[in-house]
Design a protein around this nucleic acid. Structure first.
Length: 107
DNA sequence: AGCGTGACCGTAT
DNA sequence: TATACGGCCACGC
């Protein structure tokens, strides 16, 4: 596998997301040292072992789930999140469930 | 190097 | 609220 340092960091971060919490691409990028949040999406899509990487806990900054989620689509993702205790507000994830996002000033 | 594309983000209309 | 547009940067051709 050609995992770069940044990729490994991303995997570590995503794996470190506590149960009952979610994270955003923006934050994952920031925490892992990746410049562009798009790379997070790319890395997760290249992800070979979804069993060890809860990519369903990574959402967009808006609170919506990613449009092109690879493993079962948004429906499966939302279902998993609900199962883990994540609160939803319609199609959006409640901002209060975002990891380390101290009541982010999301519009 | 250039071009098109993308699991994005922010602002404008 | 919903689209549109630009910026961002890594990847493949």
């Amino acid at each position: 596998m050609k995992n770069n340092n940044a990729d490994n960091s991303v995997y570590s971060i995503v794996t470190s997301i506590p149960r009952g919490k979610v994270s955003t691409y923006k934050q994952a990028a920031k925490l892992s040292g990746v410049k562009n949040p798009r790379q997070i999406g790319r890395i997760l899509h290249q992800n070979k072992n979804p069993d060890n990487i809860p990519c369903h806990r990574v959402i967009r900054s808006d609170g919506y789930l990613a449009d092109n989620y690879a493993f079962g689509g948004i429906s499966a993702q939302r279902k998993k999140l609900k199962k883990e205790g994540i609160g939803f507000s319609g199609k959006k994830v409640k901002t209060e469930f975002i990891w380390l996002a101290t009541t982010a000033p999301l519009k």
